[in-house]
């Protein structure tokens, strides 16, 4: 933006926040106009206090839609109270790995355990019961049912159980109550419980997903490209939520294509390449080290 535009106008909540010439604009100043206050790009967080392993993946093998090997023997562990970032170039098996862990795609080999419970190939519901929450990589395609109302979307994980339903019959009041509470708690703007999710902005849609997933009180939060396509305010919100979850003693598996995001959030960085975990780095690894590992280089293999 700063390299192409001559002037930059910032819109916030339907109002123009002002127009500045490119010469007078910096990333920081624009970000402040966008969210109405200073944005901390460097995520501030305490150092991690990891406990025992929450997620154990052993020698996992998963096929893609075409039946080709996508994950070829991946092994990794996420402990309670840490954020593990999975870095890699897009298309190296991240999606299939996440789908296998969250129960959407049955693996063809290996083992997945959540807090000691084997959930390998047991499906989404079993994964959810075992304590896995999932912020999907594509909120439009997987994360949300866009024509559904906010209330209906927030109920996606739990409509089968009381109070949302009893004996197979829904309780609209409970839907409304749940939605009111979560919309308030996660500051989702742009609609009420009866608004279709499609009417929300991208950031608010993502808040909706996060609200739903975090509210299920998971042991492990799998966040797949949680900030894709979001504005800076929403990115900051997502990041702070992930850290809050970590600090609350949950495991967080962050899959991201943004190396800056990976390095600023992660307590450990795993690099996935051609369906295998090929390297592990501390968060202060340089972009160059990561880049080499992500493209299959062996120089920095840990």
């Amino acid at each position: 933006m700063l390299t192409i535009a001559d002037r930059v106008t910032v819109l916030r909540r339907g109002r123009s926040m002002g127009t500045v010439p490119r010469s007078g604009a910096t990333e920081q100043s624009l970000a402040r106009m966008v969210v109405g206050r200073d944005v901390i790009f460097r995520v501030e967080k305490q150092s991690a206090k990891p406990a025992g392993p929450i997620l154990t993946v052993e020698d996992l093998r998963v096929l893609d839609d075409r039946g080709l090997d996508a994950v070829r023997g991946a092994t990794l562990t996420v402990r309670a109270g840490e954020i593990v970032a999975l870095a890699g170039v897009d298309g190296n098996g991240q999606s299939e790995l996440v789908q296998a862990i969250t129960g959407i795609r049955p693996p063809v080999g290996g083992r997945i355990e959540v807090d000691g419970v084997d959930v390998t190939g047991r499906g989404v519901r079993a994964a959810g019961t075992a304590g896995i929450a999932h912020i999907a990589e594509d909120r439009h395609r997987i994360g949300l049912v866009l024509p559904f109302t906010l209330a209906e979307n927030l109920a996606l994980r739990r409509y089968r159980a009381a109070p949302l339903s009893r004996f197979g019959w829904l309780n609209p009041k409970a839907f409304f109550t749940l939605a009111k509470r979560l919309l308030g708690a996660f500051d989702v703007r742009g609609g009420d419980p009866g608004t279709p999710a499609a009417a929300l902005s991208g950031g608010n849609q993502q808040k909706l997903c996060i609200a739903r997933e975090i509210d299920s009180d998971p042991k492990l939060l799998v966040a797949h490209q949680p900030t894709r396509g979001l504005d800076v305010g929403a990115i900051e919100f997502v990041h702070s939520q992930l850290i809050e979850q970590r600090d609350a003693g949950k495991g967080v598996l962050l899959v991201s294509l943004e190396s800056e995001e990976v390095r600023s959030l992660a307590d450990r960085i795993l690099v996935i390449y051609e369906g295998r975990i090929v390297a592990e780095f501390p968060p202060d690894a340089s972009e160059e080290e990561l880049g080499i590992a992500m493209t299959g280089g062996t120089v920095a293999a840990a």
Partner: peptide
């Protein structure tokens, strides 16, 4: 849910 978005429905179990 399936009618609107089968992928999301599958993702929700």
């Amino acid at each position: 849910a399936v009618g609107h978005n089968p992928d999301a429905a599958r993702g929700a179990g």
